[in-house]
Amino acid sequence: MNTAEPARLVWYKSSYSGNEGGECLEVAADVTTVRIRDSKKRGDSPQLAFTRGAWAGFVADLGRAGF
Protein backbone atom coordinates (compact mmCIF):
# COMPACT_ATOMS: atom_id res chain seq x y z
CA MET A 1 0.00 0.00 0.00
CA ASN A 2 1.47 3.33 -1.06
CA THR A 3 0.65 6.00 1.53
CA ALA A 4 2.52 8.88 -0.10
CA GLU A 5 -0.02 11.60 -0.87
CA PRO A 6 -0.12 12.94 -4.42
CA ALA A 7 0.44 16.70 -4.65
CA ARG A 8 -3.13 17.68 -5.56
CA LEU A 9 -5.97 15.69 -4.07
CA VAL A 10 -9.45 17.09 -3.68
CA TRP A 11 -10.92 15.94 -0.38
CA TYR A 12 -14.67 15.50 0.12
CA LYS A 13 -16.65 15.19 3.32
CA SER A 14 -20.07 13.58 3.42
CA SER A 15 -23.03 15.89 2.94
CA TYR A 16 -24.41 14.22 6.09
CA SER A 17 -21.55 15.71 8.13
CA GLY A 18 -22.34 18.93 9.90
CA ASN A 19 -20.00 21.74 10.85
CA GLU A 20 -20.15 20.91 14.56
CA GLY A 21 -16.77 19.17 14.51
CA GLY A 22 -18.09 15.65 14.94
CA GLU A 23 -16.49 12.40 13.93
CA CYS A 24 -16.06 12.70 10.17
CA LEU A 25 -14.00 11.18 7.43
CA GLU A 26 -12.90 12.76 4.18
CA VAL A 27 -12.32 10.87 0.96
CA ALA A 28 -10.15 11.71 -2.04
CA ALA A 29 -9.39 9.74 -5.18
CA ASP A 30 -6.77 9.80 -7.89
CA VAL A 31 -6.44 7.57 -10.93
CA THR A 32 -5.52 4.40 -9.01
CA THR A 33 -6.23 5.03 -5.33
CA VAL A 34 -9.00 6.07 -2.96
CA ARG A 35 -7.77 7.65 0.28
CA ILE A 36 -9.52 8.29 3.60
CA ARG A 37 -8.46 10.63 6.43
CA ASP A 38 -9.83 12.12 9.65
CA SER A 39 -11.42 15.49 8.88
CA LYS A 40 -10.39 16.91 12.27
CA LYS A 41 -6.65 16.32 11.69
CA ARG A 42 -6.30 17.14 8.01
CA GLY A 43 -2.63 18.07 7.80
CA ASP A 44 -1.21 15.48 10.16
CA SER A 45 -3.81 12.74 9.89
CA PRO A 46 -2.68 9.31 8.76
CA GLN A 47 -4.43 8.12 5.63
CA LEU A 48 -5.77 4.78 4.53
CA ALA A 49 -5.22 4.05 0.85
CA PHE A 50 -7.18 1.49 -1.16
CA THR A 51 -7.14 0.43 -4.77
CA ARG A 52 -10.26 1.55 -6.63
CA GLY A 53 -11.36 -2.09 -6.91
CA ALA A 54 -11.04 -2.72 -3.18
CA TRP A 55 -12.95 0.50 -2.43
CA ALA A 56 -15.75 -0.45 -4.84
CA GLY A 57 -16.06 -3.84 -3.15
CA PHE A 58 -16.17 -2.22 0.29
CA VAL A 59 -18.91 0.22 -0.73
CA ALA A 60 -20.91 -2.60 -2.38
CA ASP A 61 -20.66 -4.67 0.82
CA LEU A 62 -21.90 -1.70 2.86
CA GLY A 63 -24.90 -1.40 0.55
CA ARG A 64 -25.73 -5.08 0.94
CA ALA A 65 -25.43 -4.82 4.72
CA GLY A 66 -27.98 -1.99 4.84
CA PHE A 67 -25.76 0.78 6.16
Score class of each variant (00 low, 15 high):
5 E>A: 10
7 A>K: 07
8 R>T: 07
10 V>R: 11
10 V>A: 13
11 W>R: 09
11 W>H: 04
12 Y>W: 05
12 Y>H: 15
12 Y>D: 02
13 K>N: 01
13 K>G: 05
14 S>Q: 02
14 S>H: 04
14 S>T: 02
15 S>F: 02
15 S>G: 12
15 S>C: 03
16 Y>E: 01
16 Y>Q: 02
16 Y>G: 00
17 S>F: 00
17 S>P: 01
17 S>C: 12
18 G>M: 02
19 N>W: 00
19 N>E: 04
20 E>G: 06
20 E>T: 08
20 E>N: 11
20 E>P: 00
21 G>H: 11
21 G>T: 14
22 G>E: 13
22 G>L: 12
23 E>N: 15
23 E>Y: 06
23 E>S: 14
23 E>W: 06
24 C>D: 13
26 E>H: 09
27 V>I: 15
27 V>R: 06
27 V>P: 11
28 A>M: 08
28 A>C: 10
29 A>F: 05
29 A>V: 14
30 D>P: 03
30 D>H: 02
31 V>E: 15
31 V>H: 12
31 V>S: 12
31 V>M: 07
33 T>L: 12
33 T>P: 03
34 V>Q: 02
35 R>T: 06
35 R>N: 10
36 I>Y: 07
36 I>H: 04
37 R>V: 15
38 D>N: 13
38 D>C: 08
38 D>M: 11
39 S>R: 02
40 K>P: 07
40 K>F: 04
40 K>G: 09
41 K>S: 05
41 K>T: 11
41 K>L: 13
41 K>Y: 12
43 G>M: 07
44 D>L: 03
44 D>P: 00
44 D>I: 07
44 D>R: 06
44 D>A: 09
44 D>Y: 04
45 S>T: 14
45 S>K: 11
46 P>C: 11
46 P>L: 10
47 Q>A: 13
48 L>C: 11
48 L>P: 11
48 L>R: 09
49 A>E: 05
49 A>W: 09
50 F>L: 14
50 F>W: 10
50 F>K: 03
51 T>S: 15
51 T>I: 10
54 A>I: 06
55 W>I: 15
55 W>S: 14
55 W>D: 13
